[in-house]
């Protein structure tokens, strides 16, 4: 049975109200988790642009996330740059490096692209670990308390509405992007590069833009993360986190904005809930992933679409 427009709008309104009242109904711990999940949503949306929409198997997403975190922390902590400016700077630097990576790797595809971007991610983690003077190396770096628009962020509750607002803006921007000509070009490249070329799509430029935008999202996620986190260690920016974000978009449904959001929420929640079952969590996590792949091979969004009709999980 298809979901009607009023039902969709009603669900969105309920979700929005729930998100707005959440910090008033729960503890700082839950708000911290909510903040983390919102960050995961931005990360997943960014990776979805590259892998899900454009079909480019890039595995350097967490490197750009790290660039966002470190740039924000360094500018705000050492140079007293206002936090919003530092976040934008981190986003732009990540985007610039993403542009360069896209420009040098646009000819690669599939496993070769995956390996080269994986290597870049590993190299960046090495930089975070080894560039002591800038990143404080393996000691990790303390992130100063954030202050935005005259408002000091002293705890997770303070940060929540800022993180939520940024995430909503990112989601809306992504919806607009995917409905734009560029969004259609992304999908054309994903489906068939020769066909996209025949339709007049500049494949090379489209790929580079996808890399750049994906990195900008990750840089933004890093900057926003820095606004409520007090510490970053290079160990958190390794391949495990890359795989986590990749799993989010696969479980949610590649090429779907709703899927990326649902994947981030589902995996984020599962990860946290499984901490309560330490002895079995790896097994349970593996079984859950297998079940998803068996019964929802096109992700949660794909399963919902199949059940409720095309419009439900766009």
């Amino acid at each position: 049975m298809p979901i009607t427009l009023p039902a969709k709008l009603g669900s969105l309104a309920v979700a929005l109200i729930a998100l707005i009242v959440l910090p008033h109904l729960t503890t700082g711990y839950v708000v911290y988790l909510a903040n983390l999940m919102l960050i995961y949503i931005i990360l997943a949306l960014g990776l979805n642009i590259l892998i899900g929409e454009t079909g480019q198997f890039g595995l350097a997403h967490v490197a750009f996330y790290g660039i966002g975190i470190y740039t924000t922390a360094i500018l705000a902590g050492r140079f007293d740059v206002p936090f919003p400016v530092a976040i934008v700077a981190g986003m732009l630097l990540a985007g610039a490096i993403g542009f360069l990576l896209g420009a040098v790797s646009f000819r690669m595809r599939d496993i070769y692209l995956a390996l080269s971007t994986f290597a870049f991610g590993e190299a960046m983690q090495w930089v975070f670990k080894s560039w002591d003077d800038v990143t404080n190396g393996p000691n990790g770096m303390r992130i100063p308390q954030a202050s935005m628009f005259g408002f000091r962020i002293t705890n997770d509750h303070d940060a929540y509405y800022i993180v939520l607002a940024v995430t909503i803006v990112v989601v809306l921007a992504t919806v607009a992007l995917m409905r734009s000509r560029l969004g259609r070009a992304f999908r054309a490249v994903r489906e068939s590069e020769p066909a996209a070329l025949a339709l007049g799509v500049n494949v090379r430029l489209t790929k580079v833009i996808a890399f750049t935008l994906s990195a900008v999202y990750a840089g933004l996620a890093g900057g926003v993360y820095a606004s409520f986190s007090s510490f970053i260690h290079p160990d958190s920016l390794g391949f495990t986190t890359t795989i986590l974000v990749l799993t989010m978009i696969v479980v949610g449904g590649l090429g779907s904005i709703a899927g990326a959001i649902m994947g981030a929420l589902i995996l984020g929640l599962i990860q946290e809930l499984l901490r309560q079952a330490p002895s079995y969590q790896e097994i349970i996590y593996g079984v859950i992933l297998i079940l998803f792949m068996m019964y929802a091979p096109k992700g949660v969004a794909g399963a919902i679409k199949a059940r409720f009709g095309r419009s439900a999980a766009k």
Partner: peptide
């Protein structure tokens, strides 16, 4: 999990919840 994010989550859960 020997991981900064998880450790902070664990500590916040213990203290606040």
């Amino acid at each position: 999990r020997c991981n900064a994010n998880d450790l902070v989550a664990a500590v916040k859960k213990l203290v606040e919840q």
